[in-house]
Design a protein around this nucleic acid. Sequence first.
DNA 1: GCAAAAGTGTTACAATTACACCCATGC
DNA 2: GCATGGGTGTAATTGTAACACTTTTGC
Lengths: 230, 230
Amino acid sequence: MRAQPTYRHEVLAVVLRVRAGHLEVLLWRRARDPFAGRWVLPGGDLGPDERLGASLARHLAEKVDVREIAHLEQLETRSDPDRDPRYRVLATAYLGLVPSDVEPAVPPDTAWQGVERLPEPGFDHGSIIDSARARLRAKLSYTTIGFALAPAQFTIAELREVYVAALGHQVSATNLQRVLLRRGAIEQTPARLASSASGGRPAAVYRFRGRQLEVTDAFPAFRPRGAHHH
Amino acid sequence: MRAQPTYRHEVLAVVLRVRAGHLEVLLWRRARDPFAGRWVLPGGDLGPDERLGASLARHLAEKVDVREIAHLEQLETRSDPDRDPRYRVLATAYLGLVPSDVEPAVPPDTAWQGVERLPEPGFDHGSIIDSARARLRAKLSYTTIGFALAPAQFTIAELREVYVAALGHQVSATNLQRVLLRRGAIEQTPARLASSASGGRPAAVYRFRGRQLEVTDAFPAFRPRGAHHH
DNA sequence: GCAAAAGTGTTACAATTACACCCATGC
DNA sequence: GCATGGGTGTAATTGTAACACTTTTGC
């Protein structure tokens, strides 16, 4: 039996957050060729006896405080032999989400970049970011994944801003509140926010009821009534 | 710069079909240890300069006629260092679907096994099969993925049997027909089926309008009316 | 005619969107 | 008081489920 070929394997993180109404991705500026000066996803090589998720946490720890990542899930594995011009390396990408109320300190070569009008990233990282955005948009609709982007406490107006930025289309504050309340995803807290200098009714403060991803709207079609879970 | 570690990498296929009202998975009986005599997923090692998808097609070709696989998508990559007791090997799993009207010839060590009461497979393949079933169930609800399980032409009763087997719960033929017609997923053909010996109205024959996966029900919530795409 | 199987009409129901209106605050 | 922003009431709309009824066949 002849020896089997082996391959380098790297992990990449698409870490997203919403800031000032814009969806941003954590990128890192490459110092050397190939793609010197271009922005790329943080990550690094898989270590011996290391799982992919653990490896990602280890590499991300050099860039951000990993405890601030509220949700992490595997996206996909890229295998194009030419995806890195230097050598063959497989890459498994993850999607990570950071709440908008934490401000992770990042090293000088690292920055949050708005995903709209992003300068073309190096390697195949641009299309990986596209995959991550598509996954996020889909999951916002039928899971409680919003908890990972929203601050711990928020008004409906603030939450709306997060959803608008992540979904890329307008969302009505009224309907957002009612859908998430009916599904049991968020709840009102006793707190009230002071109204702004320009007046207006003080906003109620809400929070997500869980810090775990939950599927609230599975199998929308073909489901007999008895199978409901509300 | 020290040499980076490299890893074996294998591809695995969860190929599913519906037969006589049961969801079945294509499995292969291991001849040698570890897990001798246990059923495992077909697949094999990734080759040099080979993409994951191409590698999967190559390995599957030893088991089935690959042209009969109507849909193939990447599922996830497993990285537990102990998932194979012999050595460390990463595995990328794919989901494949075979229409119920093709009868692929399979080698003697390979068989279609009902996913209910499946004898515990070797390695971590049992949990990979679970992932594949979950993915299939979800996508049946909001995409046209049914085309990959259904025969080229079918009656609504036949299509219903496919959906019941894949979803694992009852589906009404009436509602299935209307939902898929309204979404433009299926269409009626001029053909009629002769009624059975026991009589009854002859069934109309339908077919899926496309052979590609299409998302028919994206973003169920938070979507303003203008954003519809029907 | 009668049983069987397929398909349609219709009603009921649930989820969501849209929008008018009311509420609570600062100035 | 009135502008401002937050929240609720409610109607309109859509999509789906349920089920009775009609259609079309074999015997």
